[in-house]
């Protein structure tokens, strides 16, 4: 299992084996929504805030 540091609190966040760039994970430490911006090596960034026109 791959881990990367939360950009908000620094906690180690576990990523699924099939993590994809663009996927969202939650930090178990502080609850921040994080976007996977790299998988090799694993890297996280704070996820963008919800926008009004998001959806299906």
């Amino acid at each position: 299992m791959t881990e990367a540091d939360c950009v908000t609190c620094g906690a180690a966040v576990a990523l699924p084996d099939d993590a994809e760039v663009g996927e969202i994970v939650d930090c178990g430490g502080c609850g921040t929504e994080l976007e996977v911006v790299g998988v090799d090596p694993a890297e996280l960034a704070e996820a963008p805030d919800l926008a009004e026109d998001w959806g299906e």
């Binding site: 099939d18 994809e20 760039v21 663009g22 996927e23 969202i24 976007e35 996977v36 996820a47 963008p48």
Partner: peptide
């Protein structure tokens, strides 16, 4: 895409 949701993961 701009976000890979579980739906996109299933498709990928």
């Amino acid at each position: 895409y701009s976000r890979i949701r579980p739906d996109e993961k299933l498709l990928l």
